[in-house]
Structure formats: C-alpha cells, structure tokens
C-alpha cells in the first residue's frame, strides 16, 4: 500500500464540495493542486498563518475590494482578472506602486473545478502582468444556493514614495480634468452578456491594471492633483465624489468624452447614460491647467491611454455641481445615479 498517495483533483470534471472548506486534507489538496500551483511565489510558499513582508522605504497604501459578478466570464476578462485589476488600480491611483495582494475566495458547493482553475489562472496572469504577488489567501465553501459560484475579495498593499501626495480633495478651480480612454466599456460588456443582448460587434470589457500608466504619470513630474478609477457608478459618480471632496464644481464638454459607438448605441437602446456605466481600466486625472498638455501626452504615449482626452475643468461653485456642456450646445447637470442603472422602456 502506498501511504503517501492521494488521487489528484479531477480538474476536468470535478466540483467543489463541502469538504473543500473543512480544513482537512481535501482543503489542503485544493490549495496545493490548484491555488499554489498557479499563484505560487516565495512569499506565498512561507505557508504560515501570516506572511512576513519586507518593509520598503516610503509609506504604505492599502485597499480592499470584494468582487461579485454575473457572468463570471465575459468578453475581455473574468472575475479573477477583475479581482486583481480592481485592487491594483485602487492602490495605483493613490500614486503608489502596488506590490502584494491577498485573495479570499467564497466558493459555492458544486462549483466546477475547471472553472475555478480558469479563474485562478487568470488571476495569476493578471498579477504577473501587473507585477504584483498574491502573498496570502483563504477559501471558504458555502452550501449550494448560498453564493453565486465564486466571490473573491482582494486586499492590496503598495508603497508610496515621499513627496507624492494625491487626494480627491486637491482639485482647484481652473484645473484640467482628463480621462485615459473610452467610457462605459466594462459595464456594457457585462450587461450585454447578462441579458443576452446581441449587438453587431461584441462589447469588450476594459478590465486592465493601471499601475503602468499611473507610474508613467508620477515619473513624468507633471503637476498632478489626483487620480481616480471610475468603476461602479461610472464617470458621473467619481466626478461628483471629487467635486464634493474638493468642494468645487466642474464643467465637462460632452463632445470631448471618448466613447465607442457600440457602447453608445447599446446605452441608447437600453435607455442608459454612459456616464453612469462602470469602467475597470480607465483613469481620471485632475492636474494643473498648465500641465494638461504634458499629462495628455504622457497618457497617450501609453497603450492604455491612447484615446486619452481632456474632458473638462474644475470650477468654483458653492453647490459643487458637476455640469456638462452638451454636444448640442445646451448645459445640464451630471448627477449620481440613484441605485443601479436600470434599462428604461418605451
């Protein structure tokens, strides 16, 4: 009898069952044969309850994000890549260099191991692409029906050099507002998948790690006030947050806001405003007006910023309104959306 033999996980046809969360051998095997296999690195390999990390000069930035999404796989990405990009971006927009992530998984009983492996592989690729390591993790299994396939929470830690000091409260009247590319791609990619809407060309999510782009901006030495990634709630929510935090107003030029025709068409069809639709690989930059041109050049020189544009400027406004000059010549408010974007009928 071979005592040290365990039959390998059936990654093709197997499923998550309650044993995989039980803390016993089945869980160890799942970690070894699936998670460690793809995510492995020296730090993760320490194998203790906590991971010991070398302290860097500068200050630490930390951010966390939970990811739940239907469908789990979509054009341009999946929940795994999204969980890495989302947290990397939250650290990066602070001007920091993201270094380490933790990953917590909540798995639903019955979830196919093949899908889980695909997701973990995708996380590994995304982490590698962004130059970060996943250094600690956890899995829990819940009964069928108590989760939707898989939920992933990631926490990121990065290092912020002294002298870099960005904040949503730093915008000043006269500053320029820039965006790194087209808006609404992620949200509409998800929505068209979820509701099986057939558009001529599939809309692809913009899910991407922005730390390369943010590092280029920091290195360029332009006079940055703040960076943000407009995820849930879209451009409208993020710009309103900035206006509130900085106690200022904003005027946008609708005609300058980059948007793909397919996204615009899909929004039109569903009665949605692209300004409210989520992005997962776009950067909003507010910088001094004098730096606007240089900042734009830096953005456009990077593959993720090719379609970058100045979309507006900061104004002095006691009401902290975000307003927009429509491409039609009129003016309107750009407001937060109440709740999730819901399609209109008519």
């Amino acid at each position: 009898m071979k005592t040290d033999y365990t039959r390998p996980l059936d990654l093709k046809h197997g499923h998550i069952d309650m044993n995989h969360g039980g803390g016993g051998r089945a869980m160890q095997q799942l970690i070894r044969e699936l998670f460690a296999k793809h995510l492995g690195n020296d730090l993760l390999a320490q194998g203790n309850d906590g991971t010991v990390l070398p302290v860097q000069p500068g200050r630490l930035v930390m951010s966390t994000d939970s990811h739940v999404i239907t469908p789990l796989f979509f054009p341009g990405g999946d929940i795994g890549a999204l969980a890495v990009h989302g947290t990397v971006n939250d650290v990066a927009v602070m001007g920091a260099t993201p270094l380490w992530l933790s990953a917590g998984f909540i798995l639903e009983e019955g979830f196919p191991l093949a899908d889980l492996e695909r997701i973990v592989q995708s996380m590994a690729a995304a982490a590698h692409g962004a130059g970060v390591q996943i250094v600690t993790g956890d899995t829990q299994v819940v009964e069928r029906g108590k989760a939707d396939g898989v939920f992933i929470t990631t926490t990121g830690v990065g290092v912020l050099l002294d002298g870099v000091n960005l904040s949503g409260a730093h915008a000043r009247p006269g500053d320029a507002v820039l965006i790194s590319g087209t808006i609404g791609d992620h949200g509409m990619a998800i929505m068209s998948q979820r509701e099986n809407l057939q558009f001529a060309a599939p809309i692809v999510s913009d899910s991407a790690a922005l730390n390369g782009l943010t590092a280029a901006l920091i290195a360029s030495g332009t006079e940055l006030r703040l960076m943000r990634d407009p995820t849930r709630g879209g451009l409208a929510a993020t710009l309103n947050e900035i206006a509130q935090q900085s106690r200022c107003g904003m005027t946008l030029m609708e005609a300058a806001i980059p948007i793909q025709p397919a996204v615009e068409g899909a929004c039109e069809l569903l009665g949605l405003d692209p300004l409210n639709i989520a992005n997962e690989g776009k950067l909003i930059v507010v910088c001094a007006a004098a730096s606007a041109e240089a900042t734009l050049q830096t953005l456009r020189a990077h593959p993720l910023g090719r379609n970058a544009a100045q979309i507006g400027s900061i104004t002095d406004d006691p009401h902290h309104f975000v307003q927009m000059q429509t491409r039609f010549g009129g003016r309107r408010m750009v407001d937060w959306l109440s709740g999730e974007p819901l399609p209109r009928i008519c």
């Binding site: 429509t326 010549g329 009129g330 003016r331 309107r332």
Partner: peptide, 12 residues
C-alpha cells in the same frame, strides 16, 4: 422630456 433635459435644450 429626457432628450430635452439631457441635451440642455432649454438653453437653446
């Protein structure tokens, strides 16, 4: 109503 508000037509 939506088009009028969204494109700021009253200003015109």
């Amino acid at each position: 109503t939506h088009a009028i508000a969204r494109y700021g037509i009253p200003d015109l």
